[in-house]
Amino acid sequence: MVKRHYIPVTANIPGVNGSQKALIRKVIRTALAAEGVDFPCEVDVLVTGDAEIHRLNRETRQVDNSTDVLSFPAFDLSPGELPETEDADPGTGLVPLGDMVISMEHVAAQAKEYGHSARRELAYLVVHSVLHLLGYDHLDEGPMKAQMRRREEEILAELGIGR
């Protein structure tokens, strides 16, 4: 039986509402289940704006631009590989998978650019980030990127969130 995951969602910008936070948590839980994460874990989420994500991108990746989402995995995994339950924090019993940071300004701009809802764009970025936390990558234009895109769409379809 799957125990509950701990998914704190913090917003440091105005206008982030309870339904957006609930969507983020639901998408994370669905993506984790789809990837076979059947142990309690923690994923910390910061919802912010372009200025803050730009600062974090510059400080952590030496990329002097804003971006849509940043993922900070706690483990160096490959797709399909999961951390061990022994990796759980002894105090909480939760396996810390990592952190994600989402720019709501990018969510709005990309939803408009791609012609779909902000809800769909937010869900996409959350799935994208969870997959990064679980070892997926898209640095190449080949099979790894195709595998990640396929999983993103499968998980979004499971949520009933299409383009």
Rank of each mutant, 00 (worst) to 15 (best):
I13C: 02
G15Y: 04
V16I: 07
N17V: 05
S19C: 02
Q20V: 06
Q20T: 07
A22P: 05
L23G: 07
L23C: 06
T30R: 13
L32D: 06
A33D: 08
E35M: 13
F39G: 05
C41M: 01
E42H: 05
D44Q: 14
G49C: 10
A51Y: 05
E52Y: 13
H54G: 02
L56K: 09
N57S: 15
R61N: 12
N65P: 00
D68F: 09
P79Y: 08
G80H: 12
T85S: 12
T85E: 11
E86N: 13
D87K: 15
P90M: 08
T92L: 01
L94C: 11
G98S: 03
D99L: 07
M100N: 02
M100R: 03
I102G: 11
S103K: 10
H106R: 15
H106E: 09
A109Y: 04
K112E: 09
Y114L: 15
Y114Q: 13
G115D: 06
L122R: 12
A123Y: 05
A123K: 05
Y124E: 07
L125N: 13
L125I: 05
V126S: 01
V126F: 02
S129T: 11
V130S: 11
V130T: 10
L133E: 00
D137Y: 00
H138Y: 06
D140I: 01
P143Y: 03
R149M: 01
R150I: 02
